[in-house]
Design a protein around this nucleic acid. Structure first.
Lengths: 309, 309
DNA sequence: GTGAAAGCGCTAACAG
DNA sequence: CTGTTAGCGCTTTCAC
């Protein structure tokens, strides 16, 4: 059995002479396995796919790398390959769905799929799908404990004697950022700590009027839901001549490494994004093998007490 | 011809009634094409692969996104899919080579493949391969004009009356960073402008002695080969109490957008990384169709006069 | 222990 | 214009 030899299988007894004969022939013919043929025959590809809706904004890069790193590690542990599907902005839902479920991969990890029709198709398909970071209807998800993290953050800020909570209103809905915001506000209200909304979408002067006017009572902290936004805020403060944290503090979420050395160590929440990716692959393997997985897996988040609040 | 109908081919005349019959059957059976079967039959996958050696460091994220964006756009234009291969650090060269050439993709774009054995195998394989950013022996490459860019930069600095050129010695060899460094130094010497080497590998105090001691005569500029390093340098200057560009200027290369708003607009060289990716795909398509491509394609770089030098 | 052969789903060529 | 069929390269079952 040529196939047995080439795959290095030891479960069948093959005469050493025969084995060597096969190997020699393969070498001389410059034999290369055909992935397509094997996949067709086996009905599986030993490959998992990663699909993220639309183009990832540049700001998400480091986060993305963390997640993909976890996926890679998980795939490696289970002897699977990882295929990074590329979102095609112009393609319609059916085309994207077709290309995701054409048998190229045995299962799918999805992130930031906001198209409800696509989510529905994927949830109903026979391909196992696991959602990352955000829970999606109809499929298991692996997420960070956004709510628990924000409660930790509120406790931290209260213990530091903060007087004014300037809460970032990003205007997002139904995703992890929105959950963080809701959880923080709920915690503040439960503790009776006053807060105010700061609709600082960008660092444009029009959005930073409250900051430029120093329209807050120190000690104040600006509470954001992503590190990258906290860093942007720090840059804006520097431009406006405000010191962090003396004039106003700032906190984030993610605890992602920065490409350039930041001027300060940010006070933030550490979310285990690699672990999220790794856990999602574990779930996908279980699903692919016909097992059951929890509809929602929540991974813990911890406080990183830095210098900014 | 069921196949003709399902593929929406109009070159063969099919009776509308038959066409509709086929389509109805496909719908009722929830028919889905099999990528593997089609690939096996056709001997092609309409997919190009992107492979980058080892894990990409976090600092390269934005650059990576730019390049991949260009690849994606190019693939889309040519109706190809893009498969992002994942480097598996533990796997040996033969295993990586086998997985890259198992017929999963019709051609390969490679970036930062430093293993010479792997380069040799790929160059000798029947799979078309195009190298990006760096030229590699035995395969066509698409690169930015590192040398021309650095000449532009030298001219700019000279015209601004710089007196001391502190040149970053990154210690890299044989890649685009090394080419930039060599070209800048050659241009400086050709113009008779003095320069000195500054082995600032990191922002550790031990590497920044010359900067902390202000061991340079203003107006001085620190010349680096990547934006990310220039930003790191700016952060170090801030920590040491030096102003940029008053005390010392700094310039970079890449002109990549920053996730957070930078405090200053960096003086740098704009390299068209998306265009590099796009051009590489064009070349790969030509190669795959049996055509010839130039061994080296050099894309122009332009000066971005910012506020830091 | 080893060789032969069926068949995965698809496309293209060919006969009707 | 339409139905049938060979065969892509692989794995696995079945005779030998």
């Amino acid at each position: 059995m040529v196939s047995y030899v080439l795959n290095g299988r030891m479960d069948l007894k093959i005469a050493p002479a025969t084995r060597e004969r096969v190997l020699a022939a393969a070498r001389s013919l410059d034999y290369r396995v055909s992935h397509s043929a094997r996949a067709l025959r086996l009905g599986r590809t030993n490959t998992f796919g990663f699909y993220t809706g639309g183009a990832l904004p540049d700001v998400a890069d480091t986060f993305y790398r963390k997640v993909v790193g976890g996926l890679q590690q998980g795939c490696h542990r289970h002897g699977r390959d990882l295929l990074l599907h590329h979102a095609c902005a112009e393609a319609d839902v059916e085309a994207v769905f077709a290309s995701l479920t054409d048998g190229r991969v045995d299962g799918l990890i999805v992130l930031d799929v906001f198209d409800e029709a696509l989510v529905g198709r994927l949830a109903a398909s026979s391909t196992p799908v696991v959602s990352l970071v955000n829970a999606l209807p109809g499929m298991p998800a692996v997420v960070a404990d956004d709510e628990g993290g924000e409660r930790l953050m509120l406790d931290h800020l209260v213990s530091r004697g903060v007087r004014t909570l300037c809460v970032h209103r990003a205007g997002e809905r139904g995703n992890s950022v929105a959950r963080r915001e809701a959880a923080f506000i709920a915690a503040a209200e439960a503790r009776g700590v006053p807060w105010r909304a700061c609709p600082t979408r960008t660092v444009e002067p029009s959005d930073l009027g409250w900051l430029a006017a120093r329209d807050f009572e120190p000690p104040a902290v600006f509470v954001t839901w992503m590190d990258v936004f906290a860093y942007t805020f720090i840059a804006a403060c520097a431009r406006l001549g405000l010191r962090v944290p003396e004039d106003i503090g700032v906190v984030g979420f993610d605890d992602l490494p920065r490409p350039d050395a930041p001027l300060v160590r940010l006070t933030t929440l550490h979310a285990p994004w690699e672990q999220v990716g790794l856990t999602a692959i574990d779930a996908l393997v279980t699903l692919h093998d016909g097992g059951q997985v929890a509809p929602l897996t929540v991974l813990p988040v911890s406080l990183v007490a830095g210098e900014t609040a």
